[in-house]
């Protein structure tokens, strides 16, 4: 087993042991089930809403939840090991620092992917079983799961960057919460505020690019505009006319959002004094 796989396997097993995997999967699965079936509760019928509606509501919820899960999962990946004293010992082993950080990241990524795929996948399977959804809605649902994993990886990479930069776990936790607030809440508010304040003068050229600077917005753009039937439901038809990125571009940007912070984290970690 290579060192990278050894670290990844260990993180995944730790996730199994400390119930992170079970917790995250149940949380995501429960919410997905609720959103898929709950619309029918007032009428007393167990009726499945159109799958496209589920994609819209589920993606809105994911934007809040997945970044938080990813940040909590990863913020002490480096600094926690350093503080406990495990890192000092591991660094005397014949493994490189790059192998350590990549291995741990893959392990945590597997935890997130498992939770998203199993949690949302189960709800999707239940929806399919009760019958519903055309082919395009299913593609939208598959896209939702894929981008949910990518969104998780982006925030996991940010968590690793925080973890490699700071000297204390508590600092890392504080910054992680700050990063969550910034990307999930403050950024959009600030953007909206800027639009209103400038009376819409932030033109069509700049505004779309500004959305790409936030992985949560990239995720939102993909899930609300990539598929025709979802677009109609989400009220984004107007926006998507002015802000149109090809789905492949959005996926690539989302992937960059995990690659760049992770590369930065690796280079910071390589210089960290022990």
């Amino acid at each position: 087993m290579t060192p990278i796989l050894t670290f990844a396997a260990k993180e995944f097993r730790d996730g199994l042991r400390n119930k992170w995997i079970a917790g995250a999967t149940l949380l995501l699965g429960g919410l997905a089930f609720a959103l898929t079936f709950l619309g029918s509760a007032p009428t007393g019928l167990l009726d499945v809403k159109p799958l496209a509606v589920t994609v819209v509501s589920l993606s809105s919820l994911t934007i809040f939840l997945i970044p938080l899960i990813a940040l909590l999962l990863g913020y002490d990946a480096i600094v926690g090991e350093a503080e406990r004293g495990c890192l000092l010992l591991i660094l005397t082993y014949p493994v490189s620092r790059l192998e350590i950080i990549v291995g741990k990241f893959l392990g945590h990524a597997a935890i997130l992917a498992f939770a998203a795929i199993v949690g949302y996948g189960a709800a999707g399977a239940a929806a399919a079983w009760t019958g519903g959804g055309d082919a395009e809605s299913w593609r939208a649902f598959a896209g939702l799961i894929l981008t949910t994993v990518l969104l998780g990886l982006a925030f996991l990479a940010l968590a690793y960057l925080i973890s490699a930069l700071v000297a204390e776990r508590s600092t890392a936790a504080g910054i992680a919460v700050g990063v969550w607030l910034l990307f999930v809440i403050v950024y959009d508010l600030a953007l909206m505020g800027a639009l209103v304040a400038s009376k819409g003068r932030i033109g069509a050229e700049i505004f779309p690019s500004l959305l790409l600077l936030n992985p949560a917005d990239v995720y939102r753009l993909f899930n609300l505009t990539a598929f025709e039937n979802v677009r109609k439901l989400s009220g984004m038809a107007g926006l998507s006319a002015s802000v149109h990125f090809a789905p492949a571009v959005l996926l690539a940007v989302l992937a960059l959002w995990s690659a760049i912070p992770l590369a930065l984290a690796a280079s910071v970690f390589a210089r960290r004094e022990v």
């Binding site: 730790d14 042991r17 400390n18 406990r84 004293g85 495990c86 000092l88 010992l89 005397t92």
Partner: peptide, 13 residues
């Protein structure tokens, strides 16, 4: 190399 750090820490679980 073999190394035993002071206050050696392991993953408790």
């Amino acid at each position: 190399l073999g190394f035993l750090p002071e206050n050696v820490a392991f993953h408790e679980e």
